[in-house]
Amino acid sequence: MSPQLLQYLLSGLTVGAIYALVALGFSIIYNASNVINFAQGEFVMIGGMTTVSLIAAGLPLALAALLAIAATTLVGLALEKLAVERVRSESVVTLIIITIGASILLRGLASLVWDKNLHALPAFSGERPIALGGATIVPQSLWVVGVTLVVVAALWWFFNRTLHGKAMLATSHNRLAAQLVGISVRRVLLVSFGLSAALGALAGILIAPITFTAWDVGVMLGLKGFAAAVLGGLGSGPGAVIGGLALGLLEALSAGYVSSAYKDVIAFGIMLAVLVLMPGGLLGRRSVERV
């Protein structure tokens, strides 16, 4: 493998891991409510910006990150409690429009609370690049990929090994039956917003030392995360991870071999092609119902 290719693959995996975290957030809320939460990108922004502020206030990085994740989770819970839950209408479209409104509101608030400048977070463990088979990788990339691996494993365990996780899955498969066995669908919705917000914040904190953060980073990261979720198959956990990594790699390869000006065009173009051929996404849900 040429060092150049390896370099592109490493940077693709890093950004792909971030897309995967954002995509997981989309899928978790989609599963609980069939809603596409367009404020998902804003969770990413709030996570990064809050950490920047807390570090500026003198807190150590680890504590600042934890508090920022907690604060973003509260924003997610508040969004569900104050906006989504209040809507008595069953229409999914109404709820999606509400999340679009919430994202604009959050972005506006961020530009007031903070400012419209770019902010950097210090890398978690130094900036000295590590040489790897002719390519180099910044330590922050290892943090991004490592933390994403741990989070994905933890989510897998939660949804496949615990009764509460299975209850959330069951709610996405059959809402009526879930209510009839005594699962509180309202609580499932609340937990899914909190969990998605925490995932988004984590993504925003991990990537900020590499790409900077600002009041409007949520727009593009949210869009990419949504694209990754759709590519992998909306509502599928493994699909979100694969979709995120695939989108990240596509972008890095097209930036490297074609032009960085066209990386989004090529990535989204391939995504559209996949969806034309496989409308359910790479790992879209196949029905195993026998009636």
Binding site: L163, K166, A170, H173, N174, A177, V181, V288
Partner: peptide, 19 residues
């Protein structure tokens, strides 16, 4: 019936005892 189709029979039963 409204069983949770993709989940295993045992998971369906365990969810029945969710409360």
């Amino acid at each position: 019936r409204q069983v949770f189709g993709p989940l295993s029979v045992e998971d369906n039963l365990r969810l029945g005892g969710y409360t």
